[in-house]
Design a protein around this nucleic acid. Sequence first.
DNA 1: GGTCTGAAAGAATCCGTCAGTCGTCAGAGC
DNA 2: GCTCTGACGACTGACGGATTCTTTCAGACC
Lengths: 210, 210
Amino acid sequence: MNRMSPGTQEDRAAATRLNILDAAEALFRSMGYQKTAVADIARELRMSPANVYRFFASKSAINEAIAERLLAGVAGDLDAIANGPGAAADRLRGMMRLLHARHMALFFKEKRMHDMVTAAMAEHWGVVAAFIARVESALGRVLADGAARGEFGALDAAATARMIKQATLCWMHPVLIAESLAKNLTDEIRMAGELESMLDLLIKGLRPDH
Amino acid sequence: MNRMSPGTQEDRAAATRLNILDAAEALFRSMGYQKTAVADIARELRMSPANVYRFFASKSAINEAIAERLLAGVAGDLDAIANGPGAAADRLRGMMRLLHARHMALFFKEKRMHDMVTAAMAEHWGVVAAFIARVESALGRVLADGAARGEFGALDAAATARMIKQATLCWMHPVLIAESLAKNLTDEIRMAGELESMLDLLIKGLRPDH
DNA sequence: GGTCTGAAAGAATCCGTCAGTCGTCAGAGC
DNA sequence: GCTCTGACGACTGACGGATTCTTTCAGACC
């Protein structure tokens, strides 16, 4: 193939893909995934619905790409903490706090996000699973580091990472957060406090045996 | 009021209530809550639907009473372990194992139980909340006992009980169990093993500071 | 020739209808 | 007087037709 200058075509296409993602994300956030039609996204960008399909195979694929981008951002921030300085216990705390804060912002700052998230979880579990794996991996690295430094006792990093994820699930899982808030079992402030207590207990359990 | 012998009327009424509960529970288990009509329950007992309403205000109230009976049974078994002999840590383990086992049996031995449970959780949260409170109370007593004996470090029994409940939520919560099994994240055997690991970690965290 | 569109097929969702169920009441039977 | 029934309104959930949305494709435009 020949072209004007190397990468021009691909660059334009990539830019359009990004524009579509931005417009779609804004619409999904403000009016919800279900209520947003592909025609709405196209109108926003002054193009035809058909043209959107030149860049994404389906509406669902657009949502998948948005979810991927979003979760990659969170995972990146998480890695930064994991690889940063400080005691392993503090990094662990920081990571779980970040995860909780992001989840709260994601699901409850903009109410309409809910069906966007549930659609992603139902249709693109792979993306979510990859994110969870990345979270567990980052946790595992911090745990292994802490163990190597003698800050924690001997441990199976992967298995322990999973335990920490499971133990703090109710501060991270959309369904559980929604249930807690809906049933008035707790509020945003108390939730954050309880997460700290849980982290205290877990980190104490990780300390060396004597 | 006068009557033949003391308590006769009330006894008959109580017996009929029990009969209705037994018949309803059997039907709910075998054909599901939604699919069971009050007429089905009445037919089973050779009475008219209307008569059932003399003993229960609604089909939903029948489900509430069944849930209450069921959960009271589990809570009783839990109390027995809590008040029994043995190290506090072992009793704690036993209690969580029992809860996990009962939940698994409840929700997945008989598939039809599912909508009975979800209906109870949606319509009669009070019953479930009371059960959870009783579980936390029993856990709290064991924790306080363990702390008094020096088996555990100083702790806030109520708050710590809640932490333990939260940390093990994913082995107890119907939605989470269903999700794990549906997504093939784990199976019944591995789940039990992971619960043990979590209990190891938590109990280690509870030990006195040195 | 590559980029995009309008029109149209196929899929999903909404909405009005209706059978069947829940829950009530006056009154029959003991 | 207590226990129960049969018959009646209120309501829910299921079905089918109409509408809207997703996706495709032949062809217009530059």
